[in-house]
Design a protein around this nucleic acid. Structure first.
Lengths: 151, 151
DNA sequence: GCGTTATCCGACCTCGCTGGTAGGATTAGC
DNA sequence: GCTAATCCTACCAGCGAGGTCGGATAACGC
């Protein structure tokens, strides 16, 4: 499995916010009901999106969440990174942030060498990030609106 | 995490077989020692590769495993599929084999509709499979031989 | 000011799967 | 018939995913 339900729920949440964009804040309760998702769990997920500054919130009655930017300026690599933390092909993948994405492998830590699989994992990860970066939230919103609304 | 250690160990096993190709069967014990992997676990992994007809075996003393085809005819999509069973972006992804890869989602099973995330997951999965199919075992063997041998 | 509606926050729990082990049966060379 | 290897199945521990609970805090209406 590449992604967990954090990504699934989080993206669906973003799509829902994208649909309602410009019409004031949307409460999580409304989204949880229309998507059939557990509210308490959504709360924790939306916190990740807020920390990444993809959504904004207003507290109190009639509060809720809204997109921090227009949907066509939000790409999925930012969203997934915020939700999943990382997209690593393998447990031994640790990216050093300062080094600009250098990839370590537990097997080379002692010998300083790369293992045979590194080439493959790097290619796969590149393929994933590429597709994520090419997809905007606006596309997903449009896609979801072509389909007849369910609820 | 995209892949489990089954993929990691399995690919490294294939690379090792690729290096020794043409020099008779290689015992798992030798590979386990040179790669520092648990033998009993490797046994279960190589069974997956054998079922997929990527490796062949000879039993008994001086037996072992060898590639069923030359390394440049083995692509990583076949290897990973054999090792991991599937490469699904999300738990709700179920491919119907007969339908030629149609993708179901648990949320559309009752309503017959697609959800907003389907487009994204399909793209990502396509990106992964593409990279896997473009990489041959021969490339990984060559890559591993450019690096100074460790053991 | 006070109830209501909402976001925020952290501790807690359960369950399935990954990663690995144990023990033996079978097969082939010497 | 000993030994070295593949084969096979059952078992187990740890951990992270997925979700719950209870409460604190903040804004609006009256």
């Amino acid at each position: 499995m590449i992604f967990t339900t954090k990504a699934e729920y989080g993206v669906r949440l973003l799509v829902e916010l994208g649909r309602q964009h410009g019409r004031g804040p949307v409460s999580l309760k409304a989204i949880a009901q229309s998507e059939g998702l557990p509210l308490a769990y959504l709360e924790r997920i939306v916190a990740l999106l807020k920390k990444a500054e993809l959504v904004e919130s207003t507290r109190g009655a009639h509060g809720g969440y809204r997109l921090a930017r227009p949907a066509d300026e939000i790409t999925m690599d930012a969203a997934i990174l915020a939700l999943e933390g990382k997209v690593a092909p393998m447990t031994c993948f640790v990216e050093e942030l300062e080094g600009g994405g250098r990839v370590l492998c537990s097997h080379e830590s002692d010998a300083g060498q790369g293992c045979a699989t590194k080439l493959l994992w790097l290619r796969v990860q590149g393929g994933v990030m590429e597709k994520l970066a090419q997809t905007t939230l606006a596309e997903l919103v449009a896609f979801s609106e072509r389909e007849p609304a369910l609820v």
